[in-house]
Deep mutational scan, measured.
Amino acid sequence: PQEEYKKRAKKALKKGDEDTAREALKRAGLSPDQAEEFIRRFL
Rank of each mutant, 00 (worst) to 15 (best):
F42A: 08
L30S: 01
E36Y: 05
K14C: 14
R41Q: 13
E37N: 06
L13N: 01
L43C: 11
A21R: 00
K7W: 08
R22N: 03
A9E: 01
D17A: 05
L25N: 00
F38K: 00
L25T: 00
A35V: 14
D17R: 06
A21F: 02
K15H: 13
R8G: 04
F42H: 08
D33A: 13
Q2F: 11
A21K: 01
K7V: 08
A21E: 00
K11C: 14
G29H: 03
E3I: 08
E18Q: 13
R40E: 07
D19F: 12
K15I: 13
R41Y: 09
A24F: 15
L30R: 00
R22P: 00
S31F: 04
R22Q: 03
K26L: 13
I39S: 00
E37T: 05
L25D: 00
K26G: 08
L25F: 02
R22C: 04
L30I: 04
P32D: 13
K6D: 04
K10I: 15
E37S: 07
R40S: 07
E23K: 10
K15W: 08
K15T: 12
P1I: 14
Q34A: 11
A12L: 07
R22F: 05
A9H: 02
A28I: 04
A28V: 03
R22L: 06
A35M: 12
A35I: 15
S31I: 03
K14A: 15
A9V: 04
G29V: 00
G29R: 03
L13W: 03
E4T: 07
P1Q: 14
G16P: 02
P1F: 14
E4R: 10
Q34F: 05
A9P: 01
D17H: 06
K11L: 13
S31H: 06
E18F: 15
R40F: 09
K10G: 06
E23P: 00
G16L: 04
S31N: 09
P32S: 11
R41W: 11
R40P: 00
Q2S: 12
A28Q: 02
K15N: 14
E18A: 12
D19H: 12
P1N: 14
K10M: 15
K10T: 13
T20K: 09
Q2K: 11
